[in-house]
């Protein structure tokens, strides 16, 4: 089938030699936009499907070039800092262009399938050597289904191993259309209790659990990923429910525990968004080991990290 390589979508990063995103040396392509709103999200710049302005205060050299160039009048000088009124900012990018200190950045970039593929192909020698490939992540890659579908097909036609890192929140029809071109799903499971899931992510998990069951029934290659967040989903009840659910699936799926980390704080600041988990501690190693033991005793194949 012919892939429309002129099709475009919005990305917010392409990261080479990415770790924890599947086997081998991989390039991870981050698609922008996510239907969930998880409290702990470590890629807040991936949530909105729109391009956004991002500021790195510590890089600013106070030259004022941004202020001069802003036609919308969205930049306000406050003593020593140059703030952006996001309400009137037109995202024209002029200030970013002029900011040689790279203190201002547009998060999100429209790229065509051909352009993204060209970036991915740069590391082909590493993929071949290591059994790696590309991982589509986000945001939520399924949120741009046509674009993702075209990317997957393009990679597939080039013989590049594909992984999709997803929260699973998409109509089954979409997954069904794409799944043939996915070599590996990295499938996030956060909370089994529907109400709590809704509270901490903004959506019900029913469709997520159903989609996982379907994929498993169809024999897909899946790694389940459990981001463990103290006080939110590391309680025994959630662990029990997770185990029960995972054991009820047609396949026995490997489970990767991803310990929560607070490295995203500066991103929230840069986007001018409040971070709701400011005071959450990092998971204790001891607790992580307990969780791992718990799952292992239940007969699951578990790794910390991954």
């Amino acid at each position: 089938m012919v892939v429309k390589n002129t099709l475009s979508g919005i990305l917010f990063d392409i990261r080479r030699y990415s770790v924890h995103d599947g086997p081998g040396i991989r390039t991870t392509v981050f698609l922008k936009g996510c239907p969930l709103n998880c409290w702990w999200c470590h890629n807040p710049e991936g949530k909105s499907p729109q391009i956004e302005i991002f500021q790195r205060e510590n890089r600013c050299i106070r030259c004022g070039a941004c202020l001069e160039v802003c036609e919308a009048g969205a930049i306000i000088q406050h003593n020593d800092s140059f703030e952006t009124n996001r309400a009137i900012c037109t995202l024209c990018g002029a200030c970013v262009e002029e900011c040689y200190a790279d203190a201002r950045e547009l998060v999100g970039k429209r790229m065509t399938v051909a352009e993204v593929l060209a970036e991915i192909e740069r590391d082909r020698p590493f993929f071949q050597q290591s059994g790696g490939g590309v991982t589509f992540s986000g945001g939520e890659p399924l949120f741009q289904p046509t674009f993702l579908g075209a990317l997957l097909k393009a990679c597939r036609s080039q013989g590049i191993h594909t992984a999709v890192d997803t929260c699973g929140y998409a109509p089954w029809e979409i997954l069904d259309r794409l799944r043939q071109d996915v070599d590996l799903f990295l499938y996030d499971l956060k909370l089994i209790d529907e109400e709590r899931h809704h509270w901490f992510t903004g959506v019900s998990n029913r469709i997520i659990l159903e989609n996982l069951r379907h994929l498993s029934a169809l024999g897909h290659n899946i790694f389940v990923r459990f981001p463990i967040i103290p006080y939110i989903n590391d309680d025994d009840q959630n662990l029990h429910l997770m185990t029960e659910f995972l054991l009820s699936l047609p396949q026995k799926l490997p489970l990767d525990i991803l310990p929560y980390h607070a490295s995203a704080l500066h991103k929230y600041n840069g986007l001018g968004v409040e971070y709701r988990l400011k005071d959450t501690p990092l998971p204790e190693q001891e607790r992580l080991n307990e969780v791992k033991d718990f799952f292992e005793k239940a007969g699951l194949l578990v790794r910390i990290g991954g």
Binding site: Y17, V19, G24, I25, P125, F126, Q129, S130, G132
Partner: peptide, 9 residues
């Protein structure tokens, strides 16, 4: 392992 592959590549 990844380091090994990086070297090999």
């Amino acid at each position: 392992t990844r380091l090994t592959h990086l070297i090999r590549t």
